[in-house]
Structure formats: C-alpha cells, structure tokens
Design a protein around this nucleic acid. Sequence first.
DNA 1: ATTATTGTATTAATTATATAGTACAAATAT
DNA 2: ATATTTGTACTATATAATTAATACAATAAT
Lengths: 126, 126
Amino acid sequence: MINFVLDPKTGTPFYRQIIDQIRFGIASGKLEIGEQLPTVRSLAVELKVNLNTVAKAYKELEIQNILDTHQGSGTFINKNEIILTEKEKQAKIQDICREFMTIAFSYGFTIDEIIHELQNHNQHEN
Amino acid sequence: MINFVLDPKTGTPFYRQIIDQIRFGIASGKLEIGEQLPTVRSLAVELKVNLNTVAKAYKELEIQNILDTHQGSGTFINKNEIILTEKEKQAKIQDICREFMTIAFSYGFTIDEIIHELQNHNQHEN
DNA sequence: ATTATTGTATTAATTATATAGTACAAATAT
DNA sequence: ATATTTGTACTATATAATTAATACAATAAT
C-alpha cells in the first residue's frame, strides 16, 4: 500500500499527483498485481479532497488498462495482460518511439543522450 | 520557407502548432539559419488567426533562443548557437523523457524494451 | 521628418481545466 | 429484502489558458 501525499505548491493538479503515485507504486513494486486500492471516499478523506478528484485519477488509469474498477467492490491493480498481439505491440512501440525521437531531435538531443537519460531513469526506479 | 497549416480538430492550440512547425522546420532543414520568418501580420492573415497568436508562438521561441525578433524589421531564425546551460539541457531532457516514459508505460512497455527499440532505431539511421 | 512596417502591450472574451457538492446506480453483506 | 459500501453522473464554481480586438512603440524606408 502507498502512503499518498498531495503537495499543492507544485502546481501539478491533485488528480495527476495521485495518478503519478500509483504509476510509480506499480513500477517500483510497492503496488502488486491484483491489489486493492483505497476506495475513492477513503482516499479522498485521507487527502482532504473531493471524492471526484480521486475518481478522476482512477478513471484515467482504468482507461489506460492499469486499474480495474468494479462499482460496489472497489478498484484494483489490473491483473489482465494488455491484450496486444506481438505485431501490434511492435508497431505501437515503433510508433511512439519515432514520434518521441522527432521531438527529441528538434531539441537537438542525440539518441545516445536520450538512451543515457532513460537508463538513469531506469536506475532511479529500482 | 514553410507551408504553415493549422488544424483546429487536433485540440492542440494554434500557437503551439505554429511553434511545432517552426521547430520541425529547423530540425528538418527546411528553415535555414538566419532566414526570415513571415511577419506576425502576414502569417496571421494566412492562418486566419489574430496576430497575437502568431506573436505568442514567436515570443516563446525567442525565449528559447531559437528565434531572433527585431521590432521594425522582423523575426529570424537565430544564427547563434542555442545557448543552453548544462543544467537547462539536463532539465529539458529529463522533462521530455519523463513525459515519454509515462506514455510508454501506459502501453505496458518496459524501459528496457524502449531502450532496445531506440537502439534499433539508431542502427537503422547509420 | 514623415510614413509604412514591424513587433509589443493591454484588455476583454471565450474556452478549457480542476475541484467540489450532491444525487444516483451497482454490487456486496447481512 | 434491505442496508451498506462501492464507483458513477450531473451540476456548479473558480481558475487558468487561449484567442482576439485594438492601441502603442521601435525600426526602416522614403
């Protein structure tokens, strides 16, 4: 379970801070597959925000297939593998990488610099 | 010279579409160093937007040291090398990498898969 | 010097975003 | 069956972002 914290000073909206902390929780292994998240009400009380703010965060993650919400029972880390064929997966990854590199190039960064940065990112996650 | 086009359907604001097209124009070599861009008025007429919308795009690129504006004479692609401190560069690359990883992660890709794909991309370039 | 051309500044109106208040609907537990 | 617990939907409000209308200021051309 995560210890959720909101910081109003950062400027990033509350619902996005919640999203980030869940994503990071999954990436770092603090949140396990199938685990139940706090209910929208309990987390809303804990963070002193409206329950819709929590619901919005959960909703966006559900659309991204990261969470699984069931009205009446709760919200869970999605068990299901994302259903993509290997071909679709390959196409998708090429697609987003190409788009990303276009942006990176327009800022004058090289592939090596980018890869290096991502590897750093990788180390900090673990 | 670029053939500027605005698409209201995409949802990305006009001034940002203009920024992107200039950035890509430079990255792809369509815009040369020192070249003059259309005046804020002429581009505004061409794109059927207010001149302030164009001015806003130019302004942001000027702040980023990509354009060079001179009241009375016009706006030009900056001759000077882009002066980014190592700190600014670091911040920028972290910024775009973080955004990219969020997207990649939402598709279920791991950092290793992404790095691998980018390395492939790299090989095909050379 | 004067005029035309260029970017800038100020203000207003519109639109989008973020959060909250409250009522609803589905699932579960009893 | 009914009450409780869960997420959802709808509405309102405040704030920020986007675009526009219009006047201003600096430069260049004559």
